[in-house]
């Protein structure tokens, strides 16, 4: 396999794992799948570092690996156990239609990016198509889940898509570092403040339970 093939293989695997996130019905496997996605992403970033001769991307890959593959899944697992959160994922739309919608979104992003990106580099625009798929699938997950933990995981998988996009763009300054730093910040804030406060007050992290008021008062 040439360098493009391996990059595409890894990026495609990230997209597949996004689908795997969509059909999980319990929280622990959901967190594990997210960890797997981050691991593949870290590998993909490391490969890009090698293919683009950009050693600074290796730092990004390392941070991705440490935080999103190890630390955050562990913290989330610990949170679930200690807060005695229900282990099931409350879904709004059932798995079948969600997967079909997901396939449609991937088709859309492939069609769009492969046509629009014809002018830019070969590796870059195909990576962009994968990245857009991951972002859209993450959005879909946030829309179809009610549970605060799974929404946060959906958001972090969007961030994974962004990292994929940023590393695919040749020679892009700052953004990879910014991206990683902020995803860590976001995750810390979410876990530290919202989950604990929501738990503290409502004995659940189901967002529907704090939906008692909908702005219509």
């Amino acid at each position: 396999m040439g360098p493009f093939d391996i990059a595409h293989f890894l990026a495609g695997l990230v997209v597949l794992l996004s689908f795997a996130l969509l059909y999980q019905d319990r929280l622990p496997p959901l967190i594990n799948t997210f960890a797997a996605q981050s691991l593949v992403l870290a590998l993909s970033v490391a490969w890009q570092a090698q293919a683009q001769h950009a050693p600074h991307l290796l730092i990004t890959a390392g941070i991705e690996f440490c935080f999103k593959t190890i630390v955050i899944p562990l913290v989330l697992t610990w949170t679930i156990r200690n807060l005695k959160i229900h282990r099931t994922v409350e879904i709004v739309v059932s798995v079948g239609p969600t997967i079909i919608a997901g396939i449609a979104l991937v088709g859309l992003s492939m069609g769009l990016m492969l046509r629009a990106g014809a002018g830019i580099g070969n590796l870059a625009h195909q990576d962009m198509a994968f990245a857009l798929s991951v972002v859209l699938l993450g959005l879909l997950m946030m829309v179809t889940r009610r549970n605060a933990v799974s929404q946060v995981i959906g958001f972090m998988s969007i961030e994974n898509g962004l990292v994929l996009a940023a590393t695919g763009a040749r020679g892009m300054p700052f953004v990879v570092e910014t991206c990683v730093a902020f995803s860590v910040l976001v995750v810390l804030i979410v876990i530290g403040i919202f989950l604990f406060r929501i738990r503290e007050r409502f004995d659940s992290v189901d967002v529907a339970l704090i939906d008692s008021f909908r702005g219509e008062r």
Binding site: G117, I120, A124, H125, M128, A131, L132, V135, L139, M142, A148, Q151, F155, I158, E159, G161, L162, A165, A166, A169, M172, V175, C179, V186, V190, F194, I198, V207, I210, D211, S212, F213
Partner: peptide, 26 residues
């Protein structure tokens, strides 16, 4: 609840904006 709603919606917005920023770079 307001903070949660704000957080979820605006972080999705922020994510889309970053994707747009990356696309502009490309």
């Amino acid at each position: 609840e307001a903070a949660w709603k704000y957080f979820i919606l605006s972080s999705v917005g922020i994510a889309l904006a970053l994707f747009g920023t990356i696309l502009v770079y490309m």
